[in-house]
Design a protein around this nucleic acid. Sequence first.
DNA 1: TCGATTATATTTACCTTGTATACCTACATG
DNA 2: CATGTAGGTATACAAGGTAAATATAATCGA
Lengths: 237, 237
Amino acid sequence: MAERDGPAKRGRLSRALVLAAAVALVDREGLGALTMRRLAADLGVEPMAIYRYTAGKEALLDGLVEAFFAEVNERLRTSADQRDDDGPAWRAELRRIARAFAAVVHAHPEILPVVATRPLTVPVARRPAPLLQLTEHILAVLGRAGFDDAATLTIYRAFVAWNIGRLLVDRRQVVDNPEEPDPLLRLGLHRLPAAEYPRLRALVPRLAEYDDEQELITGLDGLLRGMPEAPLDSFYG
Amino acid sequence: MAERDGPAKRGRLSRALVLAAAVALVDREGLGALTMRRLAADLGVEPMAIYRYTAGKEALLDGLVEAFFAEVNERLRTSADQRDDDGPAWRAELRRIARAFAAVVHAHPEILPVVATRPLTVPVARRPAPLLQLTEHILAVLGRAGFDDAATLTIYRAFVAWNIGRLLVDRRQVVDNPEEPDPLLRLGLHRLPAAEYPRLRALVPRLAEYDDEQELITGLDGLLRGMPEAPLDSFYG
DNA sequence: TCGATTATATTTACCTTGTATACCTACATG
DNA sequence: CATGTAGGTATACAAGGTAAATATAATCGA
């Protein structure tokens, strides 16, 4: 099989193609659908062909992360950003990064769990290059703003934590039965004993009524204002 | 096989036993080791026996989450908490919860990825009871503090996001070669081209030198100070 | 007390998935 | 034109999840 499409039998694949197909597959059908066989079929190729471009399934997941951050970087490079000069420049830049990150998550929501959990268990030095580049950029921004090493790292960790946590929380809850007009029933709330969970029952219907970006940025600003001060900030702030 | 241990062949298992064994297994050998067959072996039972207490592998993972939050609740119930009366009571209580959460994560670090990603894709109403109880508790605390519904939910989301993100980030990076005395080599930094990642190279060796709890609590306070004000706060705060 | 019922665990078997290994083949290069 | 090799295929197996049928201990009605 797999005789269609590419005229040549050779050179059909490439790492970029494989990763793109993987991302597309995950976008369309979720992480669960990402199997070597399925991916191969999408590429019009036998399963083992993929192994020439990625060491295995694990490595393929790391490839998703790579593709993800490549897209974040790309977006940062091209986003002429709406003017946003509240506070010092470094904070504006972190906001810009947070927005880019969020935008890519919204473009590929299914990948988020991988992005959130996988890189953190991988030694820094072997994380995908695009992630390293982004990290370098953030550290450089903070360094230029005048923070010393300890402060830079503290802010960096807080920034990453907030973004990841925030985006995980933003994954709106899947709804039991989208058809049901009554929100109580639609959310499956009849299963929540009202006696035990009064506040929850009252609030859940409104849990999804909020502005992601608003809360992302507001929270980020709040968080960062609580961080150590940069020596130069008082002049520019 | 499986003739040892329990004298009776009947009633060896229970949901609690199964979950406890699953948690123990994951603690010892990581999520990857959690297979139905392995878990069955640990329990001295044939694989299919487990299916009477959990609907399948997915449900088993939800069971991990359930066990996790049961432990958080337990800890909250019994922790006579070190005096901690900075700011309003509701903030002190959120700090207490954050600490309990962090403590349980440290007790079961391998479970965190599951806790961080799984509940968020499950409809609220079918999340495990211990998680619902904790949620109810948080919402109640905020309600009693005088926040209206919108503010309560905003603070709730920020609180959850911060905790999850923070704890994910706290998973220290696995080290390439723990034996190596030179930190540069130990972290595999020789693989980081110094020209491209100057700041990263300089800072990575110190990336793990920080106090988790310190940053967790400090950040939380900063974050919450940026949140909407409760009407009554001015009286108590 | 004894047989029927039922809760509990086992047996068997099947399908999906990841991947090792050996192989084939088009192509560039000497 | 021979030939080495990168790129893709064929085959096969082990590990894992789980459906379905089966065996068996515990419980209970008579």
